[in-house]
Amino acid sequence: MTSQDVEVHGVVTAPDTVRIERLLPGPVERIWEYITQSEKRRQWLAAGEMELFVGGRVEHLFRHRELSSEPTPERYRHFEESPPMLGEVTEYDPPRLLAYRWPGDNGESEIIFELFSEGARVRLVLTHRRLPDTETMVSVASGWEAHLGILVDRLSGQKPRGFWSAHAGLEKAYAEKFAAR
Rank of each mutant, 00 (worst) to 15 (best):
Q4Y: 11
V6K: 15
E7Y: 05
H9A: 15
V11I: 13
V11M: 07
T13A: 08
V18W: 08
L23Y: 00
L23F: 02
P27T: 03
I35R: 06
Q37I: 10
S38W: 07
R41D: 02
R42G: 09
A46Y: 10
A47C: 00
V54K: 04
G56S: 04
G56N: 03
L61N: 13
L61E: 14
H64L: 10
S68R: 13
S69K: 15
P71I: 10
T72R: 14
T72I: 15
R75A: 11
R77M: 11
F79E: 14
P83F: 02
P84C: 07
M85K: 12
D93N: 13
P94T: 00
W102N: 08
N106R: 12
N106C: 06
I111K: 02
F113Y: 12
E118Q: 14
R121Q: 15
R129Q: 10
R130L: 13
T134R: 11
T136P: 07
M137S: 02
V138S: 03
V140G: 03
V140K: 00
A141W: 03
A141L: 03
W144D: 04
H147E: 03
H147S: 05
G149T: 05
I150P: 14
R161H: 11
F163E: 12
W164I: 10
A168F: 04
G169L: 07
L170A: 07
A173F: 07
E176T: 08
K177D: 12
F178K: 04
F178E: 01
A179G: 14
A179N: 11
